[in-house]
């Protein structure tokens, strides 16, 4: 199976005593990859590097056989295939619909198609009637679901999730994990950070552990 990402000799120093180091890491396409490690181990930094939000100070990254260039315009094209949902996501002011429509609008998707896709995705994340809700009225868990929906509506090739279940109640976990399985079955590569070791077993994911910024494999 083809590798979605191949990271080689990556080094990125954030402070005097923290440096993210990845000797070699291959993330296979169409699988769930779980990043685990203590707080401050470098999970979020690694996800930001994969999302092309951070340019690593050293090393190289390959995305589906294409080296990731440092050029802004090329990285922007890559970011149209890779979407990151952050741990504490930011929702733009306005309605749930306007948040979900943003990425579609900038991709030139027609209005009727936007409505169809948004309705489907809101159903998938368990918020079918939330389209017209103002984001200021949402709870923490709902914000996280809307952010997930905003990423899913773009049909990303790679979905990066930074502790996506942090604000989701335990009762909704099986539903969320089933959604991940559906995505993977459809060919999406999922890379997510988690503090829940049991989750790795439940979603049959590939385990990647980080310790003090060093990827253990």
């Amino acid at each position: 199976m083809e590798a979605a990402f191949t990271l080689n000799q990556i080094e990125h120093r954030l402070s005097a005593d923290f440096c993210l180091t990845v000797q070699r890491l291959e993330l296979q396409q169409g699988k769930i990859h779980l990043l685990t490690g203590a707080n401050g181990a470098g999970k979020s930094t690694l996800l930001k590097i994969l999302a092309c939000l951070i340019q690593p100070q050293q090393g190289s990254m390959v995305f589906f056989d294409q080296p990731v260039s440092a050029f802004r315009s090329e990285q922007q094209l890559l970011r149209r295939q890779i979407t990151l949902v952050e741990q504490a996501p930011y929702l733009f002011s306005g309605t749930v619909f306007s948040n979900l429509a943003y990425g579609l609008k900038i991709r030139g998707i027609k209005c009727s198609a936007q409505h169809r896709r948004i309705a489907t995705v809101l159903e998938q994340v368990g918020l079918p009637s939330f389209s017209d809700r103002q984001v200021t009225e949402l709870s923490g868990g709902e914000v996280q679901r809307v952010a997930l929906a905003r990423a899913l509506v773009l049909n990303p090739v790679v979905l990066l999730l930074d502790e996506p279940t942090a604000n989701i109640d335990h009762a909704s976990l099986p539903e969320f994990e089933q959604l991940l399985q559906q995505l993977v079955a459809g060919g999406t590569t999922v890379v997510m950070s988690t503090h829940d070791p049991a989750q790795a077993e439940r979603v049959a994911g590939n385990f990647i552990s980080l310790e003090n910024g060093v990827v253990g494999g």
Binding site: Q76, Y90, L154
Partner: peptide, 18 residues
Amino acid sequence: ADDRIVPTLRTLGASSMQ
């Protein structure tokens, strides 16, 4: 402004102008 706005926009695929 909130620090998360620009990274969020970038990860959604927005160009610098957008």
